[in-house]
């Protein structure tokens, strides 16, 4: 087994990019473990705890970026570093929406301006609030969650109607829009028939 490190001096990447790079680095062929982290003493202690600390890592300073790879052979390690360098090089252009997890609907809507629909599946206690947030961001809503009160449902639908948006649900489990199946939607041929049915009727 081989462990190698590359230390990038005084190199800073924002946390979202680092997380994304680390996830992808661990999926590269031949890689058993890949760690991309700032070279702090605590992070070195963690590397020691998990058996990834090699003497070269001690040189890393708190403002340096450490890239540590464990693979079957030296050659596989080198291949992995080449792959990771490519990921670094691509960073700016590969930051696609599908690769990033957003904490809130607001941040997702802001970062993906072309998005026009939100599927919401959260605890019922939070569902109406999240649906409203989506509508406020001019997103159509498919509300998978249930346990939403009648009053909240009416309020959401009125608000959506005022904004010219679709408000499907609560307890909406399946839909096909523009030939795209959502949630439990089946893949079907495109045609001229539309079906609207209540939850639990087995229309799907």
């Amino acid at each position: 087994m081989s462990i190698k490190v590359v230390i990038k001096k005084s190199t800073y990447f924002d946390s979202v990019s680092l997380m994304s790079l680390s996830t992808k680095a661990n999926q590269l062929p031949g890689v058993e473990q890949a760690v991309i982290a700032m070279g702090t003493e605590m992070n070195k202690e963690v590397l020691r705890n998990v058996g990834l600390l090699i003497p070269e890592i001690e040189e890393a300073k708190s403002s340096d970026l450490m890239i540590v790879v464990k693979a079957e052979t030296d050659e596989l390690c080198d291949d992995a570093f080449a792959g990771i360098e490519e990921l670094f090089a691509k960073k700016g252009v590969t930051k696609g929406a599908s690769e990033i997890k957003y904490a809130t609907i607001d941040s997702a809507a802001k970062s993906i301006p072309e998005a026009n629909l939100a599927i919401i599946s959260v605890n019922g206690a939070f569902a109406a609030r999240e649906a409203r947030k989506a509508l406020e961001n001019d997103l159509h809503v498919m509300l998978f969650s249930d346990n939403v009160s009648i009053e909240e449902e009416i309020s959401l639908k009125q608000y959506a109607h005022e904004k010219g948006l679709l408000m499907m649900g609560p307890d909406c489990g399946t839909a096909i829009i523009g030939n795209v199946a959502l949630c439990f939607g089946n893949a079907v041929r495109k045609g001229s028939i539309g079906i609207v049915a209540a939850s639990g009727t087995g229309s799907q």
């Binding site: 946390s15 680390s22 760690v35 700032m38 702090t40 605590m42 992070n43």
Partner: peptide
């Protein structure tokens, strides 16, 4: 302090 991989650990 310094525990975690991110820019602000």
């Amino acid at each position: 302090v310094g525990l975690g991989p991110g820019l602000t650990p």
